[in-house]
């Protein structure tokens, strides 16, 4: 479903103006002492708690709701800024006040 993101520079814009940059995992780990496995986990492995609301044709689901996550987005068709925002994978919506990080 089409939703909008809050760019800290441009304000609310259609999501299709942005590039998704993934969950915020913090800065790049130091290279010294980083094992190959740690590195590849950092790059690719994610935990995305589930739960989804209002399953089609069924009742509203309760419990184990997806946790809103901090993410990086790039306003490629706008100002060209990478910013952090909070979005809920369970609703596919930016969480109120999540923009502008």
């Amino acid at each position: 479903m089409t939703f909008r993101l809050t760019c800290p520079v441009c304000g609310k814009r259609d999501v299709y103006e942005f590039t998704f940059g993934g969950q915020d995992r913090g800065p790049r780990p130091a290279q010294e002492g980083l094992s190959a496995e740690e590195h590849f986990r950092w790059v690719q492995f994610r935990m995305i708690p589930g739960g989804w609301e209002g399953g089609e044709g069924g009742g509203v689901r309760e419990g184990d709701r997806a946790a809103p996550q901090e993410e990086w987005w790039y306003h490629g068709q706008g100002c060209g800024v990478w910013f952090r925002t909070t979005r809920d994978p369970g609703t596919n919506r930016e969480v109120e006040g999540g923009g502008g990080g």
């Binding site: 986990r41 935990m47 995305i48 708690p49 589930g50 997806a66």
Partner: peptide, 20 residues
């Protein structure tokens, strides 16, 4: 598509992204 959510119940991280 919900497998990563199930795995997350055990705290298992996977290189799987559920996408619409």
């Amino acid at each position: 598509g919900y497998s990563s959510a199930i795995a997350a119940m055990l705290g298992i991280e996977l290189p799987i992204h559920p996408l619409t």
